[in-house]
Amino acid sequence: MKVITIATDLEHPFLRRLLVPSCDAVGLNLVVLEANKKGFRPRDKRAFLTDYLTRCAAPDELVMFTDAYDTLFLRGEEYILKAHAGFSQSVIFSAEPNSWPLGTIGLALQKDLPARPYPYLNSGGFIGPAGDILALCAKYPSPPSEQFPLLKQLRTHDFDTDRMYGPSDQYYWTLVHLLESDTVGLDNSAILFENFTPTVANFCELSRWTSDFRAHGKQAASYRREYARLQARLQSPSGAAQVHFASSLTKTVVLDLLDEGRLPSWLVGVLQR
């Protein structure tokens, strides 16, 4: 089994200080694929990943993708293999509390009632046989929005979700999951992946919080609120293999807590094994 990430900055502090050491500590084989920073977009991750899997992985080899700058691992291969085997689908994605980037449109596309506590796909972590991942990417070379009547209707009103959200890898995988639910599952209960992003009613709130932090630094109300929220949230240890701090403000707070020696022992302890 391999863990694969894609990075444009090999010296990014989260990658260097948290993701790489955590994989070393739990014995995971981390493969870092370096991408050129200039012009790189989140959707380009698929091209890098499929190129690597085509060249370097057998079809039945289990591979786990992880974001580079806001994730770390708590458990190793034995746990991951056993947890993955417990799902009925072969490709399992992380899940989160927010419908992003589609927002309320994403809610309208859902066929079933939300599975709590993490109802919606997050593309910052997924696992499956290399052959199955490659087959999905080959079947859907671009976001399959044409297969959703609602999205086609919106396009007639000049609301083109491909144009608005096409650069998002999460947009692509959300649509693929809705079409391929027998193959692609979500880790709604955080067995393999746990997402620590704040729950918001409107995802635009996160952008406003980031702008507030950029303008006012650690004195920003958004920073103080996220600092307090995350400290309280981290009082409860995660049982997952990967944890994901999936917003720019959240991962900033994590790095600050690391520098201040305030990360809880269950989280930082893995780095000291």
Rank of each mutant, 00 (worst) to 15 (best):
M1W: 07
K2C: 00
I4M: 09
I4Q: 10
T5E: 02
I6G: 08
A7S: 15
T8C: 08
D9W: 06
E11L: 12
R17E: 15
L18R: 10
V20A: 12
S22Y: 09
C23F: 02
D24E: 15
G27V: 05
L28W: 12
L28I: 11
N29C: 01
E34P: 11
R41S: 06
P42V: 06
D44E: 06
K45I: 13
K45N: 13
R46G: 04
R46N: 10
A47I: 04
A47P: 00
L49D: 08
T50Y: 09
D51A: 15
T54Y: 07
T54M: 10
T54V: 09
R55K: 14
P59G: 07
D60C: 00
E61G: 05
E61P: 06
E61Y: 07
M64L: 15
M64H: 12
F65S: 02
T66G: 05
Y69V: 12
D70L: 10
T71Y: 02
T71I: 01
L72P: 02
R75N: 07
Y79T: 07
L81F: 08
A83I: 13
A83Q: 15
H84I: 10
H84Y: 13
F87L: 06
Q89Y: 08
V91P: 00
F93G: 09
A95Y: 05
S99H: 09
W100K: 05
W100A: 02
G103I: 00
T104L: 13
T104F: 12
I105R: 02
G106D: 01
A108W: 03
K111G: 15
L113E: 15
P114E: 12
P114W: 09
P114K: 09
P114Y: 09
A115Q: 14
R116L: 14
Y118K: 01
P119C: 01
P119F: 03
L121E: 04
L121M: 03
L121W: 03
S123F: 01
G125Q: 07
G125P: 05
F126M: 10
A130Y: 09
G131T: 13
C137M: 15
K139D: 03
Y140E: 10
P144H: 03
E146A: 14
F148M: 00
F148W: 01
F148V: 00
L151E: 04
L151T: 07
L151G: 03
R155W: 02
T156C: 12
R163I: 12
M164D: 08
G166W: 07
P167G: 04
S168C: 06
S168K: 08
Q170S: 08
Y172E: 02
T174N: 08
L179V: 12
L179K: 11
L179N: 11
V184R: 05
G185T: 03
G185S: 07
G185I: 05
D187N: 03
S189T: 07
A190H: 00
E194D: 11
A201I: 10
F203Q: 00
C204K: 01
E205W: 02
T210L: 15
S211V: 12
H216Y: 14
K218F: 13
K218C: 06
Q219E: 15
A221Q: 13
S222G: 07
R229I: 01
R229G: 05
P237T: 11
A240R: 00
S247L: 00
T250A: 13
T252Q: 11
V253A: 02
L255T: 06
D256G: 06
L258Y: 15
D259N: 09
P264R: 12
W266I: 11
L267C: 07
L267W: 01
V268L: 10
V270Q: 11
L271A: 10
